[in-house]
Amino acid sequence: MNTGVIVFPGSNCDRDVAVALARAAGRPPVMVWHKETALPPLDLIVVPGGFSFGDYLRAGAIAAHSPVIRAVKDRAATGVPVLGICNGFQVLTECGLLPGVLMRNRDLRFICRDVDLRVDNAAWRFTAGYREGQVVRMPIAHNEGNYFADDATLDRLEGEGQVLFRYCTAEGVVNDAGNPNGSQRNIAGIINASRTVLGMMPHPERVADPDLGGTDGIAFFAGLMTALQ
């Protein structure tokens, strides 16, 4: 399994996700600098969390127009799976691989804490390690995680089963009390129409080691690797 992690100035979860990928895939990922115009053969591309280009203009906006993202878009068009976590999700919406936008959190605060997520759809490879309706716990750490799209887009995402993760209470109830940042319809993670690109604000790579944070992310990476084989 060949995986790759895109690295921008300001990325700060690239090494964390590299460790998680190395464990799940059996070999370390290729780290690809943002100035690269070509990618090696890859079975999975990860756009990691962080503050690419200092979040200048809008979170992810500058990274979305970097040379390597052009190559990522070309590869995504051929069906290679792409996973964007946190800032990576912001980059994927800004470059047009995913619909909608991540706006500033409802309460204007940077939020860094564990949240409960309901796995809304486990039918796709990105959630192959979970079962539908399962509640998993992962940290979020963002200032712009408030998912917004127009009603027609939201209806389409829900109707087509493209919402994979929703913020919820510890009991798994999707309501406003379980919504940390004001995201429309509690959306925490979505896939594109062809089911090859996932963007999510929570960090599975930060709960992929029993000694660090938690273990709910281990099944995420293990399930994904199995599904990709």
């Binding site: 203009l57 906006a61 127009h65 919406t93 800004e94 619909p99 909608g100 936008v101 917004f148």
Partner: peptide, 9 residues
């Protein structure tokens, strides 16, 4: 269209 504004919002 391409950079200064995000026309979604």
């Amino acid at each position: 269209q391409q950079l200064l504004a995000n026309t979604v919002i």
